[in-house]
Every structure is written in C-alpha cells, then in structure tokens.
C-alpha cells in the first residue's frame, strides 16, 4: 500500500498505534488506570482467564487507551476468586471479588468509565496496598 499524503500517513499511524499502545514508555506512569487480575492457581481455577479476556474486550470495544491491564499473583482472597483490583489515579484502590465475565464488563463500563462502583462485588474499598 502506498502512502500518498500526510493524511494517509496519520490514518496509518492511528491504525498502527493500537498494536503498540501496550508499550507505554514509563514517562506517564502514575496517570494511567491499572486493572489487576489475580491469576494465581485459585484465580485461574475460578475462571480468571475468562475475566481477563472479558476485561480486555470491553476495554477495546470502548476504545479506552489509558488503561493497563495487568495480571498479578495471588491477592489473598481465594474464597472470592476471581479477584480484580482497580487502581484509579489519585483514588483509593478498590478490590472486587467473584468477578465473572459480566461483572468484569460492568467494572469497566460503570466504574472506570462512569465512576460508579459495582455493588455486591466489592471486597475492600480503601486499603493501603498499591
């Protein structure tokens, strides 16, 4: 495909950026939203991979680009797996439990996008753990 104008190049860039936006260079760390999914043995057994995939799909469908979706080890709430912790900049982290794929979708659409907490799934709100 030949690029014939600056506009075409910009379009090309926008299409390509999706492929690389996982790689933030560390300069704007601290301003991005972090979603951490507990992916220890218990989490995986309880379906954390499905949760993770649902989170990712929802993020992509809504075109959000300032979210880091990270898998982490055991968060210590094995009774309520899968667990998802949401770190919004300058806010206390919120830990959600029993997050199936529908709840995962709600976390992104209600909490991340609209600031509304997802009831019945909050394990801990406000605690000193990054």
């Amino acid at each position: 495909m030949k690029i014939k104008s600056l506009d075409e190049l910009i379009k090309m860039r926008e299409a390509s950026v999706k492929k690389v936006n996982l790689r933030e260079t560390g300069e704007n760390a601290g301003e991005t939203i972090e979603l951490m999914v507990g992916m220890a043995t218990c989490g995986i057994a309880a379906g954390a991979r499905e949760t993770l995939q649902s989170l990712m799909e929802t993020i992509q469908t809504n075109g959000l680009d300032n979210i880091k979706l990270i898998q982490v080890g055991c968060l210590g709430f094995c009774h309520s797996e899968p667990t998802v912790q949401l770190n919004m900049p300058n806010q206390e982290p919120v830990l959600y439990g029993n997050v199936d794929k529908d709840t995962a979708k709600k976390i992104v659409e209600d909490h991340v996008m609209n600031g509304k907490l997802v009831d019945n799934h909050i394990l801990i709100k406000s605690f000193d753990k990054a």
Binding site: L6, L9, K19, V20, T25
Partner: peptide, 24 residues
C-alpha cells in the same frame, strides 16, 4: 520500543511524519 523490521511500528510512533510535514 519497536520492532525494527516492521515499518508500521515506526509509523505508530510518529515515524515519517517529519518527512510528510517537510514535504507538504
């Protein structure tokens, strides 16, 4: 940061924009 064998990754980080700007 990029895969040097893939031009689209260079373009994703504003590659060839400087040339485009200069020429146009």
């Amino acid at each position: 940061l990029i895969n040097p064998e893939d031009i689209t990754e260079y373009i994703a980080f504003q590659g060839y924009e400087a040339l485009g700007k200069a020429l146009t």
